[in-house]
Design a binder for these strands. Structure first.
Length: 422
DNA sequence: CTATAACTCTCAA
DNA sequence: CTAACGTTGAGAGTTATAG
């Protein structure tokens, strides 16, 4: 078995450029929700030393100096571009795992290994021409190695023209290559593990690959042992073609500015809950508990800090927005304390089960919920936009809604946003 | 003491 | 002018609790 990992280059930045070619060659960043942090950087911005996750306000001076352009996250656009990219790539293999918005694994079973590099080139060319996005391709006998090969393709460390196939390289070549890559680049090795591994003298990918797997299992975890085996070419991770239903569903946001009162928090919490419940119904599940949390801004040490969460169990599992909202607002009232500047709130739907496979109630009445009403709401909101039909508690003006000061048009999903040529 | 629940930590995009 | 720092989900391992 071999895998290809296809990953978009600076995906969000590339989406913005696709519809605004003037941005080509310019330093661009895309910001997280609320225009808070940098989540995508063009090559020009990376060259300036801007780190992933950097708060935007800290970069204002540098940005002005170098003319860095910032865009608010336009997920409607990115999701649509992602779908197009995935559809094109799906034609290259009967087995595809969509791993995230900008990357997918393809199973290469049954194809001739000698053809892999050519296939990779065709994928790149095809996605570029049909969708307008640049991608890189990594190919190897395990998923972990395919991720690493993709990294090499992106950094031009091995392979050529954005495609790297470890299968085309000799053991000696791989040895020397792995000796030059930091262990932190390996899938599953994050900041903490990098630190701890360094303590054992494990610094490069090669060090990790050649380390004692049993010792790593004892000292760290079974996960790291699997990673080591994968680096040696022993496949431990399978392709997951159909995504399993979520076990929890979360919706949370930071506010554009801090809010103080219970009614405002109620608006926010019920808005987030409506969104979570939509997702819940979409996957055909019901929830047995709702968690609500609120918190002040942990970065602002001048203000008094408070954060609290509560889990509200439901007597009967449901996907009814009305009942879920009632539970969430009940919980919110319990944890709310006046006198704090709240920066963020959220809800989590927990103990999810497929609808129709849940425990009935022994005492009390089993009300059927409102499946028909929910269906109408979901359809109306899908057709005319989120929040077209909503509960009154969500409020009308929503002044706390997140900041998006640098939003590009939804070029591919809103007629009004289509650029006009006169 | 064991089994499970609850919680913490880490990682990823 | 000032203040301003994301969201969602999973799994493993550890600790608390119930019986």
């Amino acid at each position: 078995m071999s895998f290809a990992l296809v990953d978009g280059n600076n995906f969000y930045v590339s989406c913005e450029r696709m519809f605004n070619p003037m941005l080509e060659g310019k330093p661009i960043v895309v910001l997280s929700n609320n225009d808070g942090c940098v989540v995508a950087r063009s090559a020009e911005v990376k060259a300036l030393g801007v780190k992933m996750g950097e708060p935007w306000f800290k970069l204002k001076a540098l940005a002005k100096r170098h003319g860095i352009l910032a865009y608010s996250s336009n997920y409607t656009l990115y999701a649509d571009m992602s779908n197009r990219m995935m559809r094109v790539l799906s034609t290259y293999s009967p087995q595809q795992e969509i791993y995230s918005i900008d990357e997918c694994f393809l199973g290469l079973d049954g194809f001739s290994p000698a053809e892999f590099p050519v296939m990779g080139q065709r994928m790149r060319q095809h996605v570029k021409q049909w969708v307008g996005l640049p991608v890189c391709v990594g190919i190897a006998p395990t998923k972990t190695l395919a991720k690493l090969a993709n990294h090499c393709a992106k950094k031009d460390l091995a392979g050529a023209e954005g495609v790297c196939d470890f299968g085309q390289m000799s053991a000696a070549e791989l040895d020397s290559l792995f000796g030059r890559i930091k262990v932190g680049e390996v899938w599953g090795v994050g900041r903490r593990l990098t630190e701890r591994l360094a303590g054992l003298g494990i610094v490069t990918v090669r060090d990790l690959r050649d380390a004692d797997a049993g010792m790593l299992r004892r000292e760290f975890s079974v996960v790291l042992e699997r990673t080591v085996l994968e680096l040696r070419g022993f496949s431990c991770l399978e392709l997951e073609e159909l995504a399993p239903a979520k076990k929890q569903i979360m919706s949370s946001r930071s506010f554009s500015a801090c809010i103080h009162t219970l009614p405002e928090l109620e608006e926010a919490v019920s808005t987030y809950l409506a969104r979570a419940a939509e997702k819940l119904r979409r996957q055909g599940s019901v929830a047995e508990a709702v968690q609500v949390f609120i918190r002040t801004n942990p970065f602002n040490q001048n203000h008094p800090q408070y954060q609290q969460a509560i889990t509200v169990p439901l007597t009967q599992a449901t996907s009814d927005t009305v009942r879920l909202t009632r539970a969430a607002l009940w919980g919110l009232k319990r944890i709310y304390r006046p006198g704090f500047a709240y920066q963020k709130a959220g809800v989590m739907l927990m103990d999810l089960h497929p609808d129709g496979q849940t425990q009935g109630v022994l005492f009390g009445t089993t009300s059927p919920g409102r499946p028909a009403l929910m269906q109408v709401m979901d359809r109306a909101n899908a057709r005319w936009g989120r929040g077209t039909l909503r509960l009154a508690v969500e409020g009308a003006k929503k002044p706390w809604q997140m900041k998006r000061d640098h939003m590009s048009p939804a070029y591919t999903t809103r007629w009004e946003d289509l650029p006009r040529v006169n």
